[in-house]
Design a protein around this nucleic acid. Structure first.
Lengths: 195, 195
DNA sequence: ATAATTTCTTAACAAATGTCAACGACATTT
DNA sequence: AAATGTCGTTGACATTTGTTAAGAAATTAT
């Protein structure tokens, strides 16, 4: 049985959910631990699970033609992980999820996921709302990313997700901002002198 | 009654749909025409309709703090338009949809949209699949945008959406690529000499 | 057709960012 | 403790992109 207080609270909060449904849902998930650098899923493989982050953080990235990483985002506590496209299509995916810190994930397989989605409206709704919100946020982020300098992107990151710079190595932060690690150093250096 | 062949085909293609459902759905939509530069929806206002593009093209953009446009994408035939967040929350939105060419939209109001979603599983499914696909594509685009030079972004745009450079003014193309119009000119000039 | 306006291009220069190389701080291994 | 490797920083330099200004080209209005 899942012990995570955050996850239990999330399931309890689903609109119109009964005690029984709640426990069926909780029993459909299993816990998985990852060491730093370990992968939750890899490009080229079929993503067989979705995972709720109970502890730790991970990076979500693609390896581009020239070999460099492009980090799409980081997941901390209370985020969901997994390659949605691959998970839904059951075809090999194009993305990687890799642990940065030691991670505890609360996972569900595709078959159990389908059962919950078909039988529990509330669970289905949770999933769709997540996708919808994620899409809306992704649009907003894309609009800003497009017309900001590296420094502006860095400052916005500090404001919106202060935990990133605390918990993620700087070369990954640079790959997330889409700049060279040296540029990140320069920006940080400049900002520290301005203060 | 909606005359658009494309739209009718889209509705007909919904899985498990009956003749009656089909006509109820078609009757829930109405046609709206826009002149170039006319807005379908504006930031600060509540987006009251979603629209299917039957003819023409529009830009989807945000006006940033410094007054410049950041174009998120363009919609051509067979795309959907509207500020999803505002439409769903019924709160003032942050985005604009503006016609570039003369446009014919096939529109639905929120109240009729809700009815269709509640009563027709197939319609509901259409909407969710669209959101899901859009989200997955947005992630893929964000990953590439992040680590490409202006020239690479331009070349990818030519490959993936050749109609953009044909139908959209160059200053809007530049706002879409996140570069200055002068940089776009330079890139085009350079590429034309290389060939 | 002419004038007015908008859009696109070009050039010169400034600013931002990437690249390459070197170095020091820190942690891990031996 | 020494050796090794990783990570973050710094500096010099090259490249890319933004900015400003001007003018050409295309479009629209008169």
């Amino acid at each position: 049985m899942i012990e995570s207080a955050n996850f239990q609270r999330l399931i309890k909060s689903l609109p119109g959910i009964t005690k029984e449904e709640e426990s069926v849902i909780l029993e459909s998930f299993n816990v998985r631990q990852l060491e730093p650098k370990e992968y939750f899923c890899r490009e080229g493989e079929i993503c067989k699970q979705l995972g709720y982050v109970d502890k730790g953080c991970l990076s979500y990235f693609q390896v581009l033609a020239d070999g460099r990483k492009s980090i799409i985002h980081f997941a901390f506590e209370d985020w969901w992980t997994g390659d949605l496209e691959s998970f839904l299509t059951r075809e090999p995916g194009h993305y990687n999820w890799q642990a940065i810190e030691p991670v505890e994930l609360i996972c569900i397989s595709r078959s159990k996921f389908d059962i919950l989605r078909n039988e529990y409206t509330a669970f289905n709704g949770l999933f769709y709302r997540k996708t919808q919100t994620a899409y809306i946020k992704a649009m907003a982020k894309a609009a800003k990313d497009k017309s900001e300098t590296a420094e502006e992107k860095y400052l916005r990151m500090l404001e919106e997700q202060p935990q990133i710079i605390q918990r993620v190595p700087h070369y990954d932060v640079a790959a997330y901002l889409g700049i060279a690690p040296e540029s990140l150093s320069r920006i940080r250096n400049k900002l520290s002198k301005e203060k």
